[in-house]
Design a protein around this nucleic acid. Structure first.
Length: 611
RNA sequence: GCGUUGAUGGUCUAGUGGCUAUGACUUGGGCCUUCCAAGCCCAAAACCCGGGUUCGAAUCCCGGUCGGCGCACCA
């Protein structure tokens, strides 16, 4: 049983993740988040908001998950988010049709499915596996289609990324931010890709959650106003060059930008911010690195792109965040399709005097004479030089036909005008997070199977230490077999940081008796008033309940015992050390709040109880 | 999408054609004056779906669904 299996097993059992539609047999590529999973995910998203919305000031927007066709025509998803596939009739193997014909012709990537089918037939291309004949090539588009409105309606698609919403709303956003670069907007929401073969649990879903941030920057200045904040932070970088050698290296953001490894400060800052976020939610820094896209893997419009990769036991290094400089590609694409200019007017520090030669055709005179051609004539006039325009009879050529225009029909002059700024199409810096993968990474990195006996010895815990001497032979056998019958002195612990833990405090009466339950319920109410995520648990022995809470990663447990009735104190147990302190009920909610949110030292929370 | 392999309570599992389907853990109710899985009593809970063969199918056959693995795919 590898770690993935263990984590998924626990996740299913404890209400983190379930296969969707299980009642009906399920469907690949869809997962439900159970009560704890849903809470954990929300808390991760909430911290993301704290980073990007509150700290960075990129406001959140919410766009429909269904988009109309134009949006995805502009973004390139209708045309490009698909691959021509072709299957062998004999062995059933599927191949990329364009790859099949690559050797016999150029520009195979530009052919349609019909053309590819044609070429494959003509050239007699057969299956490289079994030599069988190929069927027809077809386009497989990864977007989910839907119909908007009744009847034949209007073609719509479920969005394959949230990013397009921010691009489409660019003008509104620009106005909202009072037209000052840089500005950004974020969106957290579902996106959809009709993956051919989703696998690997929550790593590749057909419906998934993205948290994307689009920062519109001045293309001429990609320095970051707050660069110093992270300049001396060391990141594990796996640059293009490093990948050739297979050796990632640690380097400060400042040095990487100075050496040109990271394209510019803005990207460098965002890499560091991502690093900060991922470690904050509990990703192990030693299993986190930033890998630069290789030249051939980078989207054609990107200048530089880095993936934050998290190392997972079964899957190796998994891309969880993409941080790219998408340049002006998206805005230009939408400008073209929508026939609307998308830019920000940037004022110069000082207005500039610009001298230019200006031609002003007099349309009220040209019009009556040239009628339908007047527009073309005026355009042609604008192309002429001063010398040509100075003639009494000005000659212009329209479609090879020479036309003369009398000099009173056009004015021209060298003009000097004050220009106070220019229209700039911003470049987009995009950190794009795959929340589901990060969720799983958080689970796996928090997961630990721990030897309790050793733990008790190390922590100096008093009590049940002597329970059983696990004989060492058992341990050796367990290695090979992993069949549950070996006596295991282990506990499963999810070491969630208290920032993300779906349950922050468990309140446990030592025994199920009214005199213990009553004070426990009072404490429960006090903690809830403090907005803590609390669970009450009175079923089974106390040890079992501690284990249960270890498994779901509850950082602290409060236990009400008979001493509570005498001196109004309870014990607080720390999940990781398993140590307990005894503290008064009075003010317990503040103590726990400080432990959870203020990083208060556990042992300062009360008197040592079991160590 | 192809090949391969598997699917029994919440979890792990026994069962290879024959009564009410095995066991453990877990879970729920109760007992217990005391703190780190396995204390006591009681209870709940399963043969992936659809066809076929058969007097009879969890078991054999076919198809599907879901999971693992390999290939392909993942702009």
């Amino acid at each position: 049983m590898d770690k993935y299996e263990q984590v998924i097993e626990l996740a299913k059992r404890r209400g983190f993740l379930w296969n969707s539609f299980e009642l009906y047999g399920g469907s690949r590529g869809f997962y439900d988040y159970g009560p704890l999973g849903s809470t954990l995910k929300r808390r991760i998203e909430q911290i993301w908001r704290e980073f990007y919305v509150i700290q960075e000031g990129h406001m959140e927007i919410e766009c429909p998950t269904i988009g109309i066709e134009d949006v995805f025509v502009a973004s390139g998803h209708v045309g490009g988010f698909s691959d021509p596939l072709c299957e062998c009739k004999k062995c059933g193997e599927a191949f990329r049709a364009d790859h099949l014909v690559e050797n016999v012709m150029d520009a195979a990537g530009t052919l349609s499915a019909e053309q590819l089918t044609q070429v494959i037939k003509e050239k007699g291309i057969t299956c490289p596996e079994c030599g069988g004949e190929f069927g027809e090539a077809y386009e497989f588009n990864l977007m989910f289609k839907t119909t908007i409105g009744p009847g034949t309606g209007r073609q719509g698609y479920l969005r394959p990324e949230t990013a397009q919403g921010m691009f489409v709303d660019f003008q509104r956003l620009s106005r909202f931010y009072r037209e000052k670069l840089p500005f950004g907007a974020v969106q957290i929401g579902k996106s959809y890709r009709n993956e051919i073969a989703p696998r690997q649990g929550v790593i590749r879903l057909r419906e998934f959650t993205q948290a994307e941030c689009e920062i519109f920057t001045d293309p001429r200045d990609k320095s970051h106003p707050n660069f110093e904040r992270f300049a001396d932070r060391e990141l594990m970088l796996y640059s293009q060059e490093a990948q050739e050698k297979g050796e990632p290296f640690r380097m400060t953001v400042r040095e990487a930008v100075e050496k040109g490894i990271i394209a510019h400060e803005f990207l460098g800052y965002n890499l560091a911010l991502t690093n900060e976020f991922l470690t904050k939610i509990g990703i192990d820094p030693t299993r986190l690195r930033f890998r630069q896209h290789l030249k051939d893997e980078m989207a054609h419009y990107a200048i530089d792109c880095w993936d934050a990769e998290i190392e997972m036991d079964r899957f190796g290094w998994v891309e969880t965040v993409g941080i790219a400089d998408r340049t002006d590609y998206d805005l230009k694409a939408h400008a073209k399709v929508s026939k609307t200019e998308l830019y920000v007017y940037v004022e110069y520090d000082e207005p500039r005097m610009v001298t230019s030669f200006v031609v002003k055709p007099n349309m009220s005179k040209l019009g009556p004479i040239f009628k339908g051609k007047a527009k073309a004539v005026s355009e042609a006039l604008k192309q002429l030089s001063e010398a040509e325009l100075s003639q009494a009879e000005i000659k212009v050529t329209l479609d090879g036909e020479e036309v003369s225009v009398s000099s009173d029909m056009v004015e021209f002059a060298e003009e000097t005008v004050k220009v106070s700024g220019e229209a700039i199409v911003p470049h987009v810096i995009e950190p794009s997070y795959g929340i589901d993968r990060i969720f799983y990474g958080t689970m796996e990195h928090a997961f630990e199977e721990e030897d309790v006996a050793a733990k008790e010895a190390n922590s100096g815990l008093k009590g049940a230490g002597e329970a059983q001497e696990g004989d060492s032979e058992t341990a050796v056998e367990t290695e090979g077999k992993a069949e549950g019958e070996a006596e295991e002195e282990t506990r499963l612990v999810m070491r969630f940081s208290s920032a993300v833990a779906p349950v922050q405090v468990a309140v446990l009466p030592l025994l199920t008796r009214k005199d213990l339950a009553d004070p426990a319920k009072e404490i429960l109410a006090k903690l809830r008033e403090k907005n803590l995520l609390v669970a009450y648990d009175d079923s089974g022995t106390i040890g079992r309940r501690y284990r249960r809470n270890d498994e779901i990663g509850t950082p602290y447990s409060v236990t009400v015992d008979y001493a509570t009735l005498e001196d109004k104190t309870v014990t607080i147990r720390d999940r990781d050390s398993m140590r307990q302190v005894r503290a008064p009920i009075e003010g317990i909610e503040d103590v726990l709040h400080e432990l959870i949110y203020r990083g208060r030292n556990f042992e300062s929370a009360g008197k040592p109880f079991n160590f």
